[in-house]
Each structure stands twice: as C-alpha cells, then as structure tokens.
C-alpha cells in the first residue's frame, strides 16, 4: 500500500474518532509531534516537582506537609505515565531523559520561576495546576490512545491539586494582614507566567493546523487561555484578591473577560533558558540522575543475584 493510501486510512480513523494505537500505522510527523509533545509534558511533571519540593520541609503544619508530599508524589506518577506513553512511540526512556538533561528537550517554562513564600504553593495549585487541567482535560480526547488514557488518569488525580492550592490561599486570605499580603503577592507573581503557559497567540500561525487535524489538540491556545481567565477572574473574587491586570474587565457582549497583553519577550526569554531558575532546575535533575547511579547499579546487581537463585516452588500461581 502506498504512503498516500495509508495516510488516507489513518486520517479516516482520526476523523471517525477511532483512537490510534501503538502498533497502528501512523505518519512519521504524527509520531514525531507526539514524541516531542508527550515527552515535554512528562518533563514538565518531573521538573514541576522541584519548586514545590522546596517547601516540603517548611510547610506550616503536619497536615500541609502530608498533602504537599502526596501532591509531589502524584507529579512523579504523572511523569511516569507520560514517559510510558512516549515509549510506546518507539523511543527509549533513557534517551528521553537524556534529552532533558542536555537541555535539548523542553519543559513548561512556568517551573523556571522560584517559590519564594508558602503562598506560592497555593498559587501554583490554583493557577498553574488550574491552567494545566484545562489543557489536560482537552487532551483526554487526543487521538493517540496511550496519551489519552494517561490523561484520563492524570485528570482524576489533578483536581485535588487545584483544590488544595485554592484552599491554601483561602486560609491565607482570611488571616492576618501579613498573610493577606503574602497571598496577594504570590498571585501577582504567578498570574502572568500562568497565562504564558498556554503558549503564543493563534494568530502567529498562517499554516494549516496539523495538530488540530490529527486531533492531538482540539482547542487553540487562545481559546484555552480565555477559558482560564474567565474561570480564574471569578474565583479570585471568592478569595477577595485581585489579579495584576489593569485591563481585566468583563465584556457583556462577548460574555468573556478582556485582559491585557502578555509580555512575550519574557516568555521567549524564559523558554530560551534565561528564566530565574532554568539553570538551577536542570542542575537539580542532573544531580539526581548522577547521584542515583549507585542505586540503579545496586538494583541491577540485586536482580541478577536473585535471578541466579533457583525459583521458589510456589512460582507464578501464587500471583493469581
């Protein structure tokens, strides 16, 4: 069968909402796009543990510490689901991680901002996870089966993340003057980077939109960003806090909030490696990998040793 025929069959399946599975034929570009996108997504989960990990030892109570630990552990799990999905496309785990450590592969720029106060943990849950959820809910319907299934799993766990973040801010918003100020300050610092998470304007593209046609994505950056602003602007009222945008106002005609322009120079500068914490984040990942080497070696040695022993009489049936 010719490539053109195969592509036609492939697109036919996508159009009919039939999921593409790892062993199905797919265009090389589709495969490459997915590898890049899913691995970036996986790296974001893993690097995303760092700004929050910064506060585990300093969480204000045992309850908050337990919650934060659980959340960070979830992020590790999410990274794993996504690395596994990437592997179904024919890459190796090691190569994918190596690309991150070399700075070849990217992760979401939001994690290159520092977590300066406890309120930042609240703001991350509310704004950063809130933005991520909008994207991820859309991706549960992605055309590639393993990606969509990973997203379903992630979305189930993610809503706790956003709620705990909002609750942290809610408690602060009802606290002392200092706590209120801390809450507002965190929102001020995280608001714009959160809007940047959705990526450049749709208008920057004049080309036909392949990702949309392949149903990897179903909503544009600007659509998702607008959904986010509409949602957060209302929630901010509950907190009694403001969003740092003079131009933010409700438009009764469009039934949406209007908002100011993003600083795109800052966006591209952080993507290109010049954010406040880019170096620190990658150094931390490399250090963890290098210092974990003896653990990987020991586990392999132990597995070999166990393999050398005769299997127990009970064997596999016990598992059933």
């Amino acid at each position: 069968m010719s490539v053109q025929q195969l592509e036609k069959i492939f697109q036919g399946k996508v159009d009919e909402e039939i999921k593409i599975e790892p062993k199905d034929w797919m265009p090389d570009k589709y495969r490459q796009t997915l590898i890049r996108q899913i691995s970036q997504h996986a790296h974001s989960e893993i690097v995303g543990m760092l700004p929050e990990g910064n506060w585990i030892t300093r969480a204000p109570s045992l309850k908050r510490k337990a919650i934060l630990l659980a959340k960070v552990q979830d992020e590790a799990g999410h990274g794993l689901y996504l690395y596994s999905a990437t592997e179904t496309l024919g890459t190796t785990r090691e190569q994918t991680i190596d690309d991150l450590h070399r700075g070849k592969a990217k992760y979401s720029s939001i994690f290159n901002y520092p977590t300066l106060t406890w309120a930042d943990i609240g703001a991350i849950g509310w704004l950063v996870d809130g933005a991520a959820i909008l994207n991820q809910v859309m991706l549960t319907r992605a055309s590639y089966g393993p990606y969509a299934r990973a997203m379903v799993r992630i979305c189930k766990e993610e809503s706790f993340h956003q709620r705990q973040g909002f609750e942290i801010l809610l408690v602060l918003s009802k606290g002392t003057k200092e706590q209120k100020e801390m809450c507002q300050d965190a929102i001020n610092r995280w608001w714009w980077p959160s809007l940047m998470m959705f990526g450049p304007h749709d208008s920057e593209s004049t080309h036909s939109d392949q990702s949309m046609k392949w149903k990897i994505k179903r909503k544009s950056n600007d659509e998702l960003r607008q959904n986010f602003v509409d949602m957060i602007a209302e929630q901010a009222k509950v907190l009694g806090m403001t969003l740092p945008d003079q131009e933010l106002k409700w438009n009764d005609k469009t039934r949406h909030y209007e908002f100011g322009e993003i600083n795109w120079d800052e966006f591209w500068s952080v993507v290109k490696g010049n954010g406040p914490c880019n170096k620190q984040r990658l150094d931390a990942r490399r250090k963890a990998w290098e210092e974990g080497e003896w653990v990987r070696e020991a586990a392999t040695a132990y597995a070999d040793k166990r393999k050398a022993k005769p299997p127990s009489a009970k064997g596999a049936l016990v598992a059933a």
Partner: peptide
C-alpha cells in the same frame, strides 16, 4: 506543517541557547 505550537509543545527551533 507544524508552525503552530501549543501549551507544552515548544518546537525545537525556538529553544536554542541552553543545549549542552
């Protein structure tokens, strides 16, 4: 064909600078 990029999908040609 992949000029348009989305959340979590920054193309490699735009990233430069930090690769080791």
């Amino acid at each position: 064909l992949l000029k348009k990029y989305y959340y979590g999908d920054i193309p490699e040609d735009k990233t430069g600078g930090s690769e080791l």
